[in-house]
Design a protein around this nucleic acid. Structure first.
Lengths: 146, 146
DNA sequence: AATACGAACTAGACTTTGTCTAAACCGCTG
DNA sequence: CAGCGGTTTAGACAAAGTCTAGTTCGTATT
């Protein structure tokens, strides 16, 4: 009944290569595998989740490489690092501007279209600083049954 | 030249007691010390910083109690937990609505008056969920010296 | 072909933050 | 003064992420 959910829906290899190239990242087998997994669709994955997914596939990529690669991707802007869950970092493959809705009780993270939220104008920033990003997080909980 | 910066400027004990009472928290020696320190002014402290400050003073409060107390304060809304630095949680003694400016290179965290930022209207939330909070974080870095 | 070199990968030790557990303590009430 | 709930404590533990030293890999050079 169940088709293995991963084997079928990885991002095609050539597209992953293109993504890395666009961001000036040298393509390696491990980086491509991580990119193919992460960019298969819009999603938020933690390092541990990626590590787990990879070992479900044949691919074994070391823990250190997963962390190194995610840091590299984040630095070059290929993925967006999302700091929401105090226990772990998420990596967001959706590069379009958007915000986040976080379910504190399930740990689930959803995208929110940016249209609904207006950042009027940012305060005059301290001179010599540049904005890396503006993150809006809406934290919700399931209302207590009564 | 330097007066010990902590001993002098703790929140008066009676005010700390009032704060706890307002939030339905039983007053204990340890909780009062943490509250007096945290609410001495508007600031953002991590658990480790609080632990360090306390041991500078005579007071020794155990690590477990500091964590327990901060979690208790956060649950009852006495302090605001700020998730910004992926490595540690900050506790914000400023209860007025406001946002945050985070200097990624120094780890420094600043308040931003809320007036400048408009949250237009939140998207229709999933039924049965309640909003715990909306956090806006502006991440900045010192511009590279060229 | 053989060598050299830099970049990337790996296993595993390590660090840090935060949680958990079991015992001790403290103030009350019966 | 015994019992009881709530609080504190030390220290063990767990989980995420970093670091180090050694290996591997691809490419360029001779």
């Amino acid at each position: 009944m169940n088709v293995s959910p991963e084997s079928s829906d990885l991002l095609p290899r050539e597209q992953a290569e293109a993504l890395l190239a666009q961001h000036g990242i040298a393509a390696t087998e491990q980086r491509l595998e991580i990119a193919r997994l992460l960019f298969a669709r819009h999603q938020h994955l933690s390092a541990e989740q990626i590590l787990a997914q990879l070992s479900l596939q044949a691919s074994r990529v070391s823990k250190a490489t997963v962390y190194n690669t995610l840091n590299l991707f984040a630095e070059t802007g290929l993925v967006r690092e999302v700091i929401i869950d105090p226990a772990k970092r998420f990596y967001d493959s959706n590069l379009d501007p958007h915000h986040h809705l976080f379910h504190t009780d399930t740990g689930r993270l959803e995208d929110v279209p940016p249209a609904r939220i207006q950042i009027a104008d940012l305060p005059g920033l301290p001179a010599g600083t540049e904005v890396l990003g503006v993150d809006v997080v809406i934290r919700v909980a399931t209302r207590k049954p009564q």
